[in-house]
Protein backbone atom coordinates (compact mmCIF):
# COMPACT_ATOMS: atom_id res chain seq x y z
CA UNK A 1 0.00 0.00 0.00
CA UNK A 2 2.73 2.42 0.95
CA UNK A 3 4.58 1.48 -2.20
CA UNK A 4 1.58 2.32 -4.36
CA UNK A 5 1.17 5.58 -2.46
CA UNK A 6 4.82 6.39 -2.98
CA UNK A 7 4.49 5.71 -6.70
CA UNK A 8 1.24 7.60 -7.13
CA UNK A 9 2.11 10.68 -5.08
CA UNK A 10 4.52 12.19 -7.57
CA UNK A 11 2.12 11.56 -10.44
CA UNK A 12 -0.75 13.17 -8.53
CA UNK A 13 1.16 16.30 -7.68
CA UNK A 14 2.63 16.49 -11.16
CA UNK A 15 -0.85 16.43 -12.63
CA UNK A 16 -1.58 19.39 -10.38
CA UNK A 17 0.51 21.35 -12.83
CA UNK A 18 -2.00 22.98 -15.17
CA UNK A 19 -0.01 22.72 -18.37
CA UNK A 20 0.89 19.12 -17.78
CA UNK A 21 -2.77 18.38 -17.17
CA UNK A 22 -3.68 20.15 -20.41
CA UNK A 23 -1.09 18.10 -22.29
CA UNK A 24 -2.49 14.93 -20.69
CA UNK A 25 -6.04 15.80 -21.75
CA UNK A 26 -4.82 16.58 -25.27
CA UNK A 27 -3.02 13.24 -25.35
CA UNK A 28 -6.22 11.42 -24.37
CA UNK A 29 -8.12 13.38 -27.03
CA UNK A 30 -5.40 12.34 -29.47
CA UNK A 31 -5.97 8.69 -28.55
CA UNK A 32 -9.65 9.15 -29.23
CA UNK A 33 -9.00 10.65 -32.66
CA UNK A 34 -6.43 7.99 -33.53
CA UNK A 35 -8.43 4.96 -32.48
CA UNK A 36 -12.03 5.94 -32.98
CA UNK A 37 -12.07 8.59 -35.67
CA UNK A 38 -9.24 7.80 -38.09
CA UNK A 39 -10.09 5.17 -40.71
CA UNK A 40 -8.44 1.77 -40.80
CA UNK A 41 -5.82 1.18 -43.50
CA UNK A 42 -6.75 -1.39 -46.15
CA UNK A 43 -3.43 -3.23 -46.35
CA UNK A 44 -2.04 -3.02 -42.82
CA UNK A 45 -5.23 -2.84 -40.78
CA UNK A 46 -5.19 -1.40 -37.26
CA UNK A 47 -1.43 -1.71 -36.85
CA UNK A 48 -1.06 1.27 -39.21
CA UNK A 49 -2.33 3.45 -36.34
CA UNK A 50 1.21 3.34 -34.88
CA UNK A 51 1.95 5.96 -37.58
CA UNK A 52 0.19 8.59 -35.44
CA UNK A 53 2.69 8.16 -32.62
CA UNK A 54 5.77 7.20 -34.65
CA UNK A 55 5.84 10.20 -37.00
CA UNK A 56 4.98 12.88 -34.38
CA UNK A 57 7.63 11.46 -32.02
CA UNK A 58 10.14 11.65 -34.89
CA UNK A 59 9.15 15.22 -35.69
CA UNK A 60 9.49 16.28 -32.03
CA UNK A 61 12.92 14.60 -31.80
CA UNK A 62 14.18 16.49 -34.84
CA UNK A 63 12.72 19.71 -33.50
CA UNK A 64 14.22 19.19 -30.03
CA UNK A 65 17.66 18.55 -31.47
CA UNK A 66 17.31 21.59 -33.71
CA UNK A 67 16.75 23.64 -30.53
CA UNK A 68 19.84 21.98 -29.03
CA UNK A 69 21.82 23.00 -32.13
CA UNK A 70 20.62 26.62 -31.99
CA UNK A 71 21.22 26.93 -28.25
CA UNK A 72 24.69 25.39 -28.43
CA UNK A 73 25.62 27.84 -31.20
CA UNK A 74 24.22 30.68 -29.10
CA UNK A 75 26.23 29.41 -26.15
CA UNK A 76 29.42 29.69 -28.19
CA UNK A 77 28.59 33.21 -29.37
CA UNK A 78 27.41 34.65 -26.06
CA UNK A 79 28.63 32.13 -23.45
CA UNK A 80 25.08 32.31 -22.12
CA UNK A 81 24.20 30.03 -19.20
CA UNK A 82 20.57 30.22 -20.16
CA UNK A 83 21.24 28.83 -23.66
CA UNK A 84 23.25 26.03 -22.11
CA UNK A 85 20.38 25.08 -19.83
CA UNK A 86 17.80 25.19 -22.64
CA UNK A 87 20.07 22.96 -24.74
CA UNK A 88 20.42 20.51 -21.86
CA UNK A 89 16.66 20.38 -21.20
CA UNK A 90 15.84 20.08 -24.90
CA UNK A 91 18.33 17.25 -25.44
CA UNK A 92 16.88 15.32 -22.53
CA UNK A 93 13.26 15.65 -23.66
CA UNK A 94 14.43 14.97 -27.22
CA UNK A 95 16.05 11.70 -26.23
CA UNK A 96 12.80 10.66 -24.53
CA UNK A 97 10.93 11.21 -27.81
CA UNK A 98 13.67 9.53 -29.85
CA UNK A 99 13.43 6.48 -27.59
CA UNK A 100 9.68 6.38 -28.12
CA UNK A 101 10.18 6.88 -31.87
CA UNK A 102 12.75 4.05 -32.08
CA UNK A 103 10.79 1.63 -29.90
CA UNK A 104 7.53 2.26 -31.75
CA UNK A 105 9.40 1.61 -34.99
CA UNK A 106 10.76 -1.66 -33.65
CA UNK A 107 7.33 -2.74 -32.45
CA UNK A 108 5.84 -1.79 -35.82
CA UNK A 109 8.53 -3.55 -37.87
CA UNK A 110 7.97 -6.98 -36.31
CA UNK A 111 4.40 -7.59 -37.52
CA UNK A 112 4.78 -5.69 -40.81
CA UNK A 113 8.31 -6.31 -42.11
CA UNK A 114 8.76 -9.57 -40.23
CA UNK A 115 11.81 -8.58 -38.14
CA UNK A 116 12.35 -6.38 -35.06
CA UNK A 117 15.42 -4.68 -36.49
CA UNK A 118 17.42 -4.58 -39.71
CA UNK A 119 20.51 -2.52 -40.61
CA UNK A 120 18.64 -0.34 -43.03
CA UNK A 121 20.00 3.22 -43.67
CA UNK A 122 17.05 4.91 -41.94
CA UNK A 123 17.22 2.67 -38.87
CA UNK A 124 21.00 2.84 -38.61
CA UNK A 125 21.17 6.64 -38.90
CA UNK A 126 18.38 7.01 -36.34
CA UNK A 127 20.24 4.78 -33.88
CA UNK A 128 23.35 6.91 -34.44
CA UNK A 129 21.27 10.00 -33.67
CA UNK A 130 20.12 8.38 -30.43
CA UNK A 131 23.72 7.52 -29.49
CA UNK A 132 25.01 11.03 -30.24
CA UNK A 133 22.50 12.69 -27.93
CA UNK A 134 22.96 10.00 -25.28
CA UNK A 135 26.66 10.89 -25.38
CA UNK A 136 25.69 14.55 -25.02
CA UNK A 137 23.61 13.82 -21.91
CA UNK A 138 26.24 11.56 -20.39
CA UNK A 139 28.93 14.22 -20.75
CA UNK A 140 26.58 16.54 -18.90
CA UNK A 141 25.75 13.99 -16.24
CA UNK A 142 29.37 13.12 -15.49
CA UNK A 143 30.72 16.64 -15.57
CA UNK A 144 28.19 18.52 -13.44
CA UNK A 145 28.66 22.28 -13.61
CA UNK A 146 32.21 22.17 -14.98
CA UNK A 147 32.70 24.89 -17.62
CA UNK A 148 34.78 22.57 -19.76
CA UNK A 149 31.93 20.07 -19.85
CA UNK A 150 29.58 22.81 -21.04
CA UNK A 151 31.90 23.47 -23.98
CA UNK A 152 32.40 19.79 -24.74
CA UNK A 153 28.70 19.08 -24.79
CA UNK A 154 28.04 22.19 -26.90
CA UNK A 155 30.48 20.80 -29.48
CA UNK A 156 28.56 17.50 -29.52
CA UNK A 157 25.27 19.40 -29.75
CA UNK A 158 26.44 21.31 -32.83
CA UNK A 159 28.26 18.51 -34.65
CA UNK A 160 25.58 15.95 -33.81
CA UNK A 161 22.96 18.00 -35.58
CA UNK A 162 24.52 17.31 -38.97
CA UNK A 163 23.29 13.75 -38.68
CA UNK A 164 19.65 14.86 -38.66
CA UNK A 165 19.28 15.87 -42.33
CA UNK A 166 20.92 12.52 -43.11
CA UNK A 167 18.32 10.68 -41.02
CA UNK A 168 15.56 12.61 -42.74
CA UNK A 169 16.84 12.11 -46.29
CA UNK A 170 18.03 8.53 -45.79
CA UNK A 171 14.89 7.07 -47.37
CA UNK A 172 15.41 9.24 -50.45
CA UNK A 173 19.17 8.92 -50.90
CA UNK A 174 19.56 5.21 -50.35
CA UNK A 175 17.71 1.99 -51.02
CA UNK A 176 15.72 1.23 -47.92
CA UNK A 177 12.95 -0.94 -46.58
CA UNK A 178 11.45 2.03 -44.76
CA UNK A 179 8.43 3.67 -46.44
CA UNK A 180 8.95 7.06 -48.10
CA UNK A 181 7.80 10.32 -46.51
CA UNK A 182 4.05 10.77 -46.80
CA UNK A 183 3.76 14.38 -45.66
CA UNK A 184 6.10 17.34 -45.76
CA UNK A 185 8.40 18.80 -48.40
CA UNK A 186 10.16 15.56 -49.34
CA UNK A 187 6.99 13.56 -49.83
CA UNK A 188 5.93 12.07 -53.12
CA UNK A 189 2.43 13.32 -54.09
CA UNK A 190 1.50 9.83 -55.27
CA UNK A 191 1.94 8.58 -51.68
CA UNK A 192 -0.31 11.29 -50.25
CA UNK A 193 -2.25 10.25 -47.17
CA UNK A 194 -6.04 10.27 -47.42
CA UNK A 195 -7.50 13.39 -45.77
CA UNK A 196 -8.80 11.88 -42.49
CA UNK A 197 -5.44 10.18 -41.91
CA UNK A 198 -3.58 13.40 -42.67
CA UNK A 199 -5.74 15.41 -40.29
CA UNK A 200 -5.21 12.82 -37.55
CA UNK A 201 -1.46 12.93 -38.13
CA UNK A 202 -1.34 16.73 -37.99
CA UNK A 203 -3.42 16.77 -34.82
CA UNK A 204 -1.09 14.22 -33.27
CA UNK A 205 1.96 16.29 -34.27
CA UNK A 206 0.36 19.32 -32.62
CA UNK A 207 -0.36 17.41 -29.39
CA UNK A 208 3.16 16.01 -29.23
CA UNK A 209 4.63 19.47 -29.82
CA UNK A 210 2.56 20.94 -26.97
CA UNK A 211 3.67 18.11 -24.72
CA UNK A 212 7.28 18.73 -25.73
CA UNK A 213 7.11 22.39 -24.75
CA UNK A 214 5.43 21.57 -21.43
CA UNK A 215 8.14 19.04 -20.52
CA UNK A 216 10.90 21.34 -21.81
CA UNK A 217 9.60 24.17 -19.63
CA UNK A 218 9.44 22.04 -16.48
CA UNK A 219 12.92 20.64 -17.08
CA UNK A 220 14.34 24.09 -17.78
CA UNK A 221 12.86 25.50 -14.56
CA UNK A 222 14.34 22.65 -12.53
CA UNK A 223 17.78 23.19 -14.10
CA UNK A 224 17.59 26.93 -13.41
CA UNK A 225 16.57 26.37 -9.79
CA UNK A 226 19.43 23.91 -9.34
CA UNK A 227 21.85 26.47 -10.75
CA UNK A 228 20.54 29.21 -8.46
CA UNK A 229 20.84 27.00 -5.40
CA UNK A 230 24.38 26.03 -6.40
CA UNK A 231 25.30 29.73 -6.68
CA UNK A 232 23.79 30.55 -3.26
CA UNK A 233 25.56 27.62 -1.60
CA UNK A 234 28.79 28.72 -3.24
CA UNK A 235 28.41 32.29 -1.99
CA UNK A 236 27.56 31.31 1.58
CA UNK A 237 30.57 29.00 1.67
CA UNK A 238 32.69 31.90 0.49
CA UNK A 239 31.34 34.22 3.16
CA UNK A 240 32.04 31.73 5.89
CA UNK A 241 35.66 31.43 4.79
Amino acid sequence: MTLIKKLCMPICSAIGNFWLLLAGVLLVADLWVIFLWAPRDTALGDIQRILYLHVPAAWVSFFAFFIVFCMCTWYFIKRSDKADRIAHASAEVGILFTTIFLLSGIIWAKPVWGVWWTWDPRLTTTLIMWLIYSAYLMVRAYAGSDKRAERWSAVIGILGFFNIPIVYASTIWWRTIHPQQMVGPASDPSNALPDPMRITLYFSVLVFTVLFFVLLNIRYNILSAERKIAIIVDQSNHERV
Partner: peptide, 16 residues
Protein backbone atom coordinates in the same frame (compact mmCIF):
# COMPACT_ATOMS: atom_id res chain seq x y z
CA UNK B 1 17.15 -17.25 -44.59
CA UNK B 2 14.90 -14.33 -43.79
CA UNK B 3 12.01 -12.62 -45.54
CA UNK B 4 11.28 -8.94 -44.97
CA UNK B 5 8.21 -7.31 -46.43
CA UNK B 6 8.62 -3.85 -47.89
CA UNK B 7 5.07 -2.65 -47.61
CA UNK B 8 3.41 -0.02 -49.79
CA UNK B 9 4.19 3.59 -48.85
CA UNK B 10 0.65 4.55 -49.67
CA UNK B 11 -2.05 4.15 -47.08
CA UNK B 12 -5.63 3.79 -48.21
CA UNK B 13 -8.59 4.34 -45.91
CA UNK B 14 -10.91 1.40 -45.61
CA UNK B 15 -14.51 2.08 -46.66
CA UNK B 16 -17.02 2.29 -43.83
Amino acid sequence: QNILVKCPSKYVAEEE
